[in-house]
Simulated scan of single mutants.
Amino acid sequence: MVANPFGDRAAELMEAKRGCIAEKTYKTTKARLRRIERDMLRLKEEGRVTTMSPAKMLPEDIKELVVYRKGKKVSASDVNHDIAVMGQLCTMCDNTCVQKCLAKYPGLKPVDKKECRLPPLPDATYKLILHRYNTMDHKDFRAIRPYVLVLLYCGTGARNKELRLAEMNDLDQEEWVIWFKHVKGEDSYGDPRPVPIPDEIIPVVKDYLKAREDFLIAHGVHPSTVTALFCSMNGDHGAMSSNTIRKLKTYVERDIGQKFELRDCRRAFGQHYLDNDAEEQDVSNLMGHASTKTTNTYYCRRRITKSIKNVKGKW
């Protein structure tokens, strides 16, 4: 008799996933399964589920787990991740109880509000940030660094870590293209990608590179020894932390009197190109998406007014 059917089968699933998914995803999934095991054990002790064995679970058992998690007021995304991993676990045991549960109880699966496309950074806000930068002393490294960072997030559509971990040799200063190597899913499905820097932001980057060089020399550091494009201002001058990135964004927010998220910059990147007649597939490629569906669903879509203008006279 198997002493721990859930834990044993969960271990089998994780062994099958080893090397197939990113290390961070692997650790997150493993921790999720351990937590689900504790939840199922509690439900079993309360008589709300019939078994701890993924091979023998019923649609009603899955329903009880989902209802329990929703009762904990966790996010819809978190509940949906639970459903997904339980689907994988039970399917591995030739048990389709999760699929049957979702079919039998319509509406049980919560709607993730993040599935709707949020608005991009307003064009007026982008122009305000650029205008504010142009009024600054471009030799003041501390002052311009937050602005250059935000403008590059807008101009390249980079994810947080993609620009944060970019290095000097990732920047082609002849073609003015930046290569993002630390992409989403870099250990598995993600591919490095080049993104052109917009013409109006190239002078901003040039100013930053000169100020960066002067700052490092003034602190007794030879610029060639510092690989991080956006280096920290102390210690070994390595790549900045995510927390530092957030602080620099907050600095810009306070200075211009408007709040925004870095993802707003990413959405603005895609929307700006679509508004200027770039092909959806090209925009999707530059954003590092596997398909235009992801781009359209979560980030940007051609405005209906633009579509009407484009089709006029083509009937």
Rank of each mutant, 00 (worst) to 15 (best):
M1P: 06
V2P: 05
D8A: 06
K17H: 05
G19V: 12
G19H: 07
C20I: 12
E23I: 14
T28K: 00
R34Q: 00
D39F: 08
E46Y: 05
R48I: 04
S53C: 14
S53R: 01
A55V: 09
K56N: 06
P59H: 10
G71Y: 01
K73Y: 10
D78W: 13
D78T: 08
V79Q: 03
I83Y: 02
G87F: 01
Q88F: 10
Q88T: 11
T91R: 03
K100C: 11
Y105A: 00
Y105R: 08
G107Q: 11
L108E: 12
P110D: 10
R117G: 09
L121D: 05
A124L: 02
A124C: 05
A124H: 08
Y126L: 02
L128Y: 07
R132V: 10
H138T: 08
H138S: 00
A143W: 05
L151P: 11
Y153K: 00
L163E: 12
R164H: 04
R164F: 13
M168P: 00
N169L: 04
Q173E: 15
E175G: 01
E175H: 14
S188D: 15
S188P: 11
Y189E: 06
D191Q: 15
R193D: 09
P194A: 12
D199R: 10
P203A: 13
K206S: 10
E213G: 04
L216N: 12
G220K: 04
P223S: 11
L229C: 05
C231V: 10
T244A: 15
T244Q: 13
I245N: 07
I245S: 01
K247E: 11
L248F: 02
L248T: 04
Y251P: 07
V252D: 05
E253G: 01
F260W: 15
L262Y: 13
R263N: 15
R267N: 14
G270K: 03
Q271D: 05
H272E: 07
H272S: 14
N276E: 10
A278T: 03
Q281S: 06
Q281V: 13
V283R: 01
N285H: 02
M287C: 06
H289C: 08
S291I: 03
T292P: 04
T292N: 01
K293C: 09
T295C: 14
N296I: 14
Y298E: 00
Y299V: 04
R302S: 11
R303D: 03
K306P: 14
W315A: 09
